[in-house]
Design a protein around this nucleic acid. Structure first.
Lengths: 124, 124
DNA sequence: TGCCTATTTAGGCATTTAGCTAAATAGAAT
DNA sequence: ATTCTATTTAGCTAAATGCCTAAATAGGCA
């Protein structure tokens, strides 16, 4: 489970437009990285890509994108795995699933408490 | 629906420990505000409270808490309604519900895409 | 070995953020 | 009218953030 500090780290990571767009890119891009072009059979994932491939989509320097990716990794939103001199980046869907469940739980508890207090579920 | 800028604003708001704790306080506190103590019958909500009541729980100055609340309001995480010279703060559960649904949708789409690509759902 | 590719680190700079105190505003109560 | 309570605004400071370029690191290839 995600503890509070972990959640805050995730929110901080996604609360910046550039990182949010990188997040979107990694999770919905679905492009293949250069290694796949050479030999599609060694594709690790439909999403795996590398730092410079992601950086191509942005008007920021490579070090800037690299730093943002590091933050997304530290928030466990993505994974980065070194293979040779490239780093393969993949979405970490488990973190997103857990976060979604946290929100679902909060909403459910909120409804339950409101029901307990008011005796019925009100619409607003 | 929450657009991208709105989502980023929400994440930014929750990506600060103090604001996250205020958020937690407003959504799970369940305390009644001073107006309720005087006359429980005019209670607007089980959660409604006011700025100074919230500030009591933190070791920060009132203006600091006020500024954080403003940010949470601008992110539509809470609502603030002026009544007399007090401001009543309530959780805006609808925003949280929508955000939760965004995450759920992302996870579902991710699973579907992975299934389409790999022909089956892998555990990872 | 020496070069090429991929990425990170270091250091610098401008902007934003998060906190403070003091003062201003707005409404309620005496 | 004056005072009290609740809140925000203004103005300040220190620290963090987000960007850059240049240099360093690490691995692959000729």
């Amino acid at each position: 489970m995600l503890d509070m500090q972990q959640k805050i780290k995730i929110f901080k990571a996604l609360g910046n437009e550039t990182r949010f767009l990188i997040f979107k890119n990694v999770f919905t891009g679905g492009y293949t990285c250069s290694i796949d072009k050479k030999d599609p059979n060694v594709s690790v994932s439909a999403h795996a890509t590398c730092v410079s491939t992601i950086a191509e989509h942005f008007n920021f320097s490579l070090p800037t994108i690299s730093k943002h990716l590091k933050e997304l990794r530290e928030a466990q939103i993505i994974t980065m795995e070194k293979k040779g001199n490239k780093i393969y980046i993949e979405p970490n869907i488990e973190t997103i699933r857990e976060l979604g469940e946290c929100f679902n739980t909060l909403v459910e508890n909120f409804e339950t408490n409101r029901e307990l207090f008011f005796g019925e579920v009100t619409v607003s």
